[in-house]
């Protein structure tokens, strides 16, 4: 490829503009975040939104940045085997066997421990709480500490949870864990503290290939709706009737 001088200056000026505007945008976002932080309710109206999430498994490269970002953003104990999101690796071997793993939730990436010649196909599947519309974890909580917000997010009230762990048993997806420090159940919140300020969940933000997408189901123009309108999608364990709001593209039948 040959670059003319004009092209070069074009690209150059784009970079310069990009570099200049980037911080401005970030600045604006931060200011907005700070503004809504100082007034607890802010101008966020939870009746106006209904959140949804799309995972494009065909894009995921298994780098683990999302899971890493999540642990840092949400202060999930780093050295304990508890995770709000994780990446599974599926490898179909030539002999027909399906090898599934997720070492340390994929936070440190994956190593090639099986020679390539033995593998037929391989793919990654990011997992996260599905914020089920018909959430069994909410159903079974004996005190109502796990609840659904008006904007469709499933949260745990740490001041209220008695720590019976019934919800952990009831979640079909292994999305919940026990927080030893708090003595309560814990799980992904879709970064509720961020999305109510107009930011993306940390995992979505961190994904370098756009395998994770987040948006408002009430907004016909949102990226999630655009995908749902166009693509063939699936959810995890649809037969359980939990109605997940994490939608998958390219979901293999072996994924559960």
């Amino acid at each position: 490829m040959k670059l003319s001088r004009r092209d070069f200056t074009k690209i150059g000026s784009k970079i310069v503009i990009g570099a200049a505007t980037g911080p401005v945008i970030i600045d604006a976002l931060v200011k907005k975040a700070q503004a809504s932080e100082s007034s607890p309710d802010g101008d966020y109206d939870w009746n106006k939104h209904y959140w949804g999430y799309v995972v494009d498994t065909t894009k995921c490269i298994g780098c683990g940045r999302c899971a890493n970002a999540c642990k840092r953003e949400n202060e999930v104990p780093f050295d304990e085997p508890v995770y709000r999101t994780w990446i599974e690796r599926y490898r179909k071997l030539k002999d027909g066997e399906m090898k599934i793993d997720s070492p340390n939730a994929g936070i440190d990436g994956f190593t090639d421990d099986i020679p390539e010649e033995e593998i037929n196909k391989a793919f990654y599947v990011p997992k996260i709480c599905n914020h089920c519309e018909n959430a069994p974890c909410v159903q079974v909580c004996p005190v109502g500490a796990t609840y659904t917000t008006n904007d469709g997010v499933i949260l745990v009230d740490f001041e209220y949870c008695i720590g019976c762990r019934y919800c952990i048993q009831a979640c079909p997806y292994g999305a919940r864990y026990f927080n030893l420090e708090k003595g309560t159940a814990d799980k992904c919140t879709w970064c509720y503290h961020r999305i109510t300020k107009g930011l993306l969940p940390a995992c979505v933000q961190a994904c370098p290939v756009g395998a994770r997408k987040f948006g408002d189901l009430k907004d016909p123009e949102s990226i999630v709706n655009k995908i749902l309108d166009k693509e063939r999608i699936n959810v995890l364990k649809p037969d359980l009737g939990t109605k997940p709001k994490v939608y998958y593209l390219g979901l293999d039948r072996e994924v559960r």
Partner: peptide, 10 residues
């Protein structure tokens, strides 16, 4: 394969 969060019996 067990889900990463299942390492501990609840």
């Amino acid at each position: 394969y067990v889900y990463p969060n299942e390492a501990e019996i609840q």
